[in-house]
Simulated scan of single mutants.
Amino acid sequence: MSFIWPWALAALALLPLLAWLYVRGLARPAQAAALHPDLRLLAQARGRPRSLRRHLPAGLYLGALALALVALARPTAPVPLPDDRTAIMLTVDVSRSMEAEDIKPSRFFAAQEAARNFVRSLPQGARVGLASFAGYAVLHTPPTARHEQVLVAIDGLGLARRTAIGDGLLESLRALPERGAQAQSAQNQATQNLPAAAIVLLSDGRNNSGSDPLEAAAEAKRLGVKVYTVGLGTENGDPGMGGWGGFWGGFDAETLKQIASTTGGRYFEARSAGELNSIYRDLGRSLGWTLKPREVSGFVAALAGLMLLGSLAVSELFTRRIL
């Protein structure tokens, strides 16, 4: 947290003085005495010695005053705000191995549901697109703020043979704003002024067709695009899929890790539909937002007001109990 008017914080030095005056007032001797005919009845009325709770109203009041002085200094803090400049591409493996049922009801249906949850978790206005790859890559929709269009595209995904992870990554790169064919041909293209972009790539297998995934990752790095990779499937794959051998086995974790590491993204593993949904939901809540400094004086002042009301309420409660 920082402050626009930090000099106003000097007023906080008055708080120790106020606390000292409060304690001094408690210790002040009585200025008058009164006679009472029944000391026993007076002792019963007095009750037990007061605990530290009697100081709670004063403590809340000092806390409210401190927060009010902090609000006067106009504090600023990083606040998560919807980011409508960042473009995100969902890139989904639709090879035939996604029919495997080691993740219920199948890898493919689990991936579709997780992709839907990802889109729904994005803030309104965030741009998201969809690409898929099997033996070749297909762009279904470029990044758009019309999330319903992406959801319809997810529902229309179908399966095909082979796995071309590199082609899927390159197709997603070409779909990102200002990173298309023209940007890729400029070897010295500066990425500092390009809008932020990210790719979320899911695969359940190993690259066996098309471009080299690591070369595609190097291109993504050059264009300033972070790639978040997700490996889908159980450790032993689905041996019950009938004679396809390793085709239904596990994903290529090392390649997916290298893609994420090269581009500055992160690598995830999903061994169940629940894990996959959790990964996509968390990514949607982080990629669609950006932290920007905003003045939070109003929030701090509201806390000060609530604390002051609490001080008054507690003081009134104690006063009624004494009466």
Rank of each mutant, 00 (worst) to 15 (best):
A137N: 00
P123T: 00
V128K: 03
S106V: 04
I199K: 13
P123M: 02
S132Q: 00
G180N: 12
I154M: 02
I165K: 07
T191W: 03
G158T: 15
P142H: 07
S203P: 06
A111H: 05
S209W: 06
D212H: 04
S185Y: 04
S185I: 06
G129T: 08
A217F: 10
Q187V: 14
A145Y: 06
S211Y: 11
K221P: 05
G166P: 05
V150P: 09
R146D: 15
A131L: 01
G135W: 09
A181I: 07
P142N: 07
R127W: 03
G168L: 00
R127G: 06
D155F: 07
G129L: 09
A198L: 05
R127V: 01
D204L: 04
A218F: 04
R146P: 00
A100H: 05
A160F: 06
F118T: 03
V138N: 10
T191G: 08
Q182Y: 10
K221L: 13
S209M: 15
L139M: 02
A218L: 13
L173I: 13
A160S: 15
S209H: 13
Q187H: 12
G129K: 09
A216G: 02
P195D: 07
Y136N: 11
G205D: 09
K104A: 15
Q189F: 13
Y136M: 09
R206Q: 13
F118P: 01
E219R: 12
A134G: 11
L201T: 10
V119G: 06
L130Q: 12
R127F: 05
Q124W: 03
A196V: 05
D212E: 02
L169P: 02
R206V: 04
Q124T: 13
K104F: 11
Q187I: 11
L202T: 14
A218W: 03
R107F: 02
V152H: 11
A186Y: 01
E219K: 12
V119I: 07
N208T: 12
G205H: 12
L157K: 10
V119T: 04
A164E: 10
S211Q: 14
R162T: 08
Q192V: 07
G156S: 15
A220V: 07
Q189E: 10
L176D: 14
S121M: 06
A137I: 00
N193I: 00
A114S: 03
Q184H: 06
Q182F: 11
L130E: 03
V94Q: 11
M98V: 01
A110H: 01
L201F: 04
T141R: 08
A114L: 00
G168H: 00
R174F: 12
L139E: 05
D93N: 05
L214C: 10
A137P: 00
E113F: 05
E99Q: 14
A145I: 05
V128Q: 01
E148L: 04
V150F: 12
N193D: 15
A196D: 13
T144A: 11
L202K: 10
G180S: 08
L169Q: 12
E148F: 02
E101D: 04
N207L: 09
A111S: 15
